[in-house]
């Protein structure tokens, strides 16, 4: 079966929370098409609806109007296997890292059916291989509280990828980490993306992060958000941290920054008017 060319298709999709006089528009009518295997970053002022787009794609929120199609079908049908990771790594404290990483296999078919037979062999090896890839070799049987924040976030990435999702949704996954750990994890995430090639939708506040990782960046306006800029990022892969100090990269950052400052300014002018 050939893969659908578009992984995600939002057509005039909008989201409003609440009803009547108390309703809050979270996302203005948005149209966004993401081809399969692309790495898209969403940036914008806080509260602009970036996370809402993520929740739309994951099926956790239904659009108030418009259509959301993921993997060729409306989201409710769950046509695509989805992996998610948030800023808070939410590892279960009573399970070892290995068992935490294997959690999706316990839930998602076709792994679920074979979980009992393969949890000590094939699935365990799979978890160990992923953990080794993010530099957590030898930490599989540790408990979450024995690991640092950066290590937990690596394990979190493994958990998001263990069930071979076609779609990876990341909501500020590195937001709580220090600069150096964050940069290290960018490279790890890039490597993971290059080896598995899922479609990635990354929500972030960090413009350098967006420019380093994404193959395309969408800038959103202030609430209710809509996409005001959508441009590809042409830098060659694999990218490295040294690249982030080159003039082209800095220029891209500056352009993004100005767009967001303008969006915030426009929103504030509206409030005071």
């Amino acid at each position: 079966m050939p893969r659908p060319a578009l992984a995600v298709e939002l057509s005039q999709a909008s989201v409003t929370f609440g009803r009547g006089a108390n309703s809050v528009p979270a996302l203005a009518a948005t149209t966004l098409r993401i081809p399969d295997g692309e790495f898209v970053a969403l940036v914008g002022p806080s509260g602009c609806g970036k996370s809402t787009i993520l929740r739309l794609v994951s099926g956790l929120v239904q659009p108030s109007a418009g259509v959301v199609i993921v993997g060729g079908r409306e989201v409710a049908a769950k046509a695509l296997r989805i992996g998610m990771a948030f800023q808070n790594p939410t590892m279960l404290p009573w399970l070892t890292i290995e068992k935490n990483v294997m959690l999706p296999l316990k839930i998602v078919q076709p792994f679920r059916a074979a979980y009992r037979q393969k949890k000590r062999s094939e699935f365990r090896d799979k978890a160990h291989a992923l953990l080794a890839q993010v530099g957590l070799k030898g930490f599989a049987s540790r408990y979450p509280w024995q690991l640092s924040g950066g290590m937990l976030q690596r394990a979190n990435l493994c958990r998001a990828l263990i069930h071979e999702p076609r779609m990876l949704l990341l909501d500020e996954p590195f937001g709580a980490l220090d600069q150096f750990t964050r940069e290290e994890l960018w490279s790890i995430l890039q490597d993971l993306w290059l080896s598995y090639r899922p479609t990635v939708l990354l929500v972030t506040h960090d413009l350098r992060e967006a420019a380093f990782l994404a193959s395309r960046i969408c800038v959103m306006s202030a609430r209710p958000g809509r996409i005001i800029d959508d441009a590809p990022v042409a830098f060659q892969r694999p990218r490295n941290i040294a690249m982030t100090f080159e003039p082209d990269f800095v220029a891209l950052n500056q352009r993004l920054r100005e767009l967001i400052v303008d969006a915030r300014g426009a929103a504030q002018a509206e409030v005071s008017a």
Binding site: L60, G83, M84, L92, W94, A160, L169
Partner: peptide, 29 residues
């Protein structure tokens, strides 16, 4: 139970029973 973790599991297609069994009950121990 943390809402983020519930979101992660729901996005995987976990049923309420799955979440109860794997997360809810162990957490209540």
């Amino acid at each position: 139970t943390e809402p983020e973790l519930e979101d992660v599991l729901k996005a995987l297609g976990a049923s309420k029973m799955d979440i109860l069994w794997n997360v809810g009950l162990p957490r209540t121990m």
